[in-house]
Each structure stands twice: as structure tokens, then as C-alpha cells.
């Protein structure tokens, strides 16, 4: 068997597997989300008796899903910006400077990834209690920012290391001030890294369950609190299906966007672990 043929065969296998593990479950969720409230889908019906969009309307108008989306999509850009801003100086040091203890510092910067997230969340919320910080928004913002700084540090230090000293020197020799040097030597190389880390942290922030759930509970609803309520405690299959579907859509667009920015770059570099 020649190589292209093997490739095609494995490709088909992978696509087949994705159908079973992705397309099929989502289609089933779609089917459940379309069950008409007047005609429950129950034993022994094999398919829902009547389909309608009523549940989508109900969920959107009576639950706090819109509010949760608002909170989460307001938090995410703030977290992304804060993390990136705080990470920039450290990333510069990692990417462009040599100093004693650099390797140890790089390892320590991964600490937030190593401590289990629910431990961080629980004792961070306890810390907030002791400090008297009652704003849930601020609490989640601080917690998630620190949690995601490592990602920004990793991505940006690679970006900084890619900047070529010759270009900086050349710009300086030609009489360029700090702003010109930044614009010509730094910005073009940094830009994809900046965008990538912002989008990456944006997605991570929306996904993040532990801090948003523990700190936000009970009244600051975010996407994960809604999910926990609809998929855990108040589990009703049709409603859970609607909520799941609504939440997956924005993520797909974000991921497509990130893929575009990162096309040329090694993905392992982006995830910050390698």
C-alpha cells in the first residue's frame, strides 16, 4: 500500500471517529433541544413527537443565560488584557535578557498550572472573604488574571526572542527614537503573539470553571454557573441541550480566529508547554 492511500484511509477513519464523537452527540443534543414543550419526548417514543423552537425562546427569555453571557464576555477581555499587560515585562526578561536563575524563574512561572484549579478557587475565595473583597467581578478578574499569566508569558517570551537585534541596531543607527524602534523592530514581530495570547486567554477565561463557579456563587452568574445548574442540579435534558448548543457557537468562531493568527507558528509554542 502506498503512502497517499494509507493517508486517505486513516483520514477517513479519523473523520469517521469525529462523526461518532462530535457530530452525533451534537445532533442528538440538537434533537433534544427541539422537543416541543407540549409534547414530551418520553418512553417508548424513539423520536420526539413534535419539534419546535419554543425551548430556545423560553431559555433565552426566562433564564439568566443572557446575563451570564454578558458577565462572561465582559470578564474575558478584561482578564485577557490584564494578563497580557502584566506578563509583558516578565516575557521581555525571559525572551531578551540573560540573568542568573532564569531557568528556575521560568519553571516557577508555570506554578498556577500545577496547583489543582479547585484548590486555588476555594482558598482564593476564602482569601477574598478575609480581605473583605465582596465584588464578585473583581474577585474573578484577579483570580483568572493570575491563573492565565503563565500562558501569556510563554507565548510572549517566544515572540520577544524572535525580535532580531540587527533590526533594532539598524533602526537606532538610522537615528530612530524609541518609538520608531518599537514600531519597526518590535511591533511587527510581537503582534501575532499579542493577538494569540489575548484570544487564547479569552477562550480560557470563558471555559474556566473553578474560580468563576466558586467565587461567583451564588449570585454572580457566568457561563460555567449556568452550565453547572442546567447540567448538574436542575438537569432537564432538553434545557441542558439548548444551553450547551448556545454556548458552543461563540467558541468555534473564536477558535477559527485564533487559527488564522497562528497559522504560520508552531502550535506547541502557543500552548506554552513544550
Amino acid at each position: 500500500m502506498n503512502k497517499p492511500c494509507t493517508n486517505r484511509l486513516i483520514t477517513l477513519l479519523v473523520i469517521g471517529f469525529c462523526c461518532i464523537s462530535l457530530v452525533l452527540p451534537f445532533s442528538l443534543a440538537m434533537l433534544w433541544s427541539l422537543v416541543d414543550p407540549g409534547h414530551p419526548w418520553s418512553y417508548p417514543h424513539i423520536l420526539p413527537p413534535v419539534l419546535s423552537l419554543q425551548r430556545w425562546v423560553d431559555i433565552w427569555t426566562t433564564t439568566s443565560l443572557p446575563q451570564a453571557l454578558l458577565h462572561s464576555y465582559l470578564l474575558a477581555p478584561c482578564v485577557a488584557l490584564c494578563s497580557v499587560l502584566l506578563a509583558l515585562p516578565t516575557a521581555y526578561a525571559f525572551g531578551r535578557l540573560e540573568f542568573p536563575g532564569k531557568q528556575a524563574a521560568q519553571l516557577i512561572s508555570l506554578l498556577p498550572l500545577i496547583v489543582p484549579s479547585f484548590v486555588v478557587a476555594l482558598f482564593f475565595s476564602s482569601l477574598l472573604n478575609v480581605l473583605g473583597i465582596y465584588s464578585r467581578f473583581l474577585g474573578i478578574l484577579i483570580g483568572q488574571t493570575v491563573l492565565f499569566i503563565p500562558y501569556a508569558i510563554r507565548i510572549l517570551s517566544v515572540s520577544f526572542s524572535l525580535i532580531r537585534q540587527e533590526i533594532i541596531d539598524a533602526t537606532r543607527d538610522l537615528g530612530g527614537g524609541p518609538i520608531t524602534v518599537f514600531k519597526t523592530a518590535y511591533l511587527p514581530v510581537l503582534k501575532p503573539g499579542l493577538l494569540a495570547s489575548i484570544i487564547m486567554i479569552f477562550i480560557l477565561s470563558i471555559e474556566e470553571f473553578a474560580i468563576a463557579f466558586v467565587v461567583g456563587s451564588p449570585d454572580f452568574v457566568t457561563v460555567p454557573t449556568i452550565l453547572y445548574s442546567y447540567l448538574g442540579y436542575n438537569f432537564i435534558r432538553s434545557n441542558a441541550a439548548v444551553v450547551s448548543l448556545i454556548l458552543v457557537v461563540p467558541n468555534i468562531f473564536l477558535m477559527l480566529l485564533m487559527e488564522r493568527f497562528l497559522k504560520a507558528r508552531n502550535t506547541a509554542v502557543i500552548t506554552g508547554k513544550g
Binding site: P89, I108, V115, F123, V130
Partner: peptide, 24 residues
């Protein structure tokens, strides 16, 4: 200079994780 630059990013991480673990 390098150590100063580490403060806002790495410094914050160290303080945060240290405080949380001590809290626990």
C-alpha cells in the same frame, strides 16, 4: 533590570500561589 521586570508577572504569581497555599 531583569529582576525588576519579573515583578509584575512572576512576582504576582509567586505571591498569589504562596498566599493561597499558606491559607490552606
Amino acid at each position: 533590570l531583569a529582576y525588576c521586570l519579573l515583578l509584575p508577572g512572576l512576582g504576582l504569581i509567586i505571591v498569589f500561589i504562596f498566599v493561597i497555599i499558606s491559607m490552606a
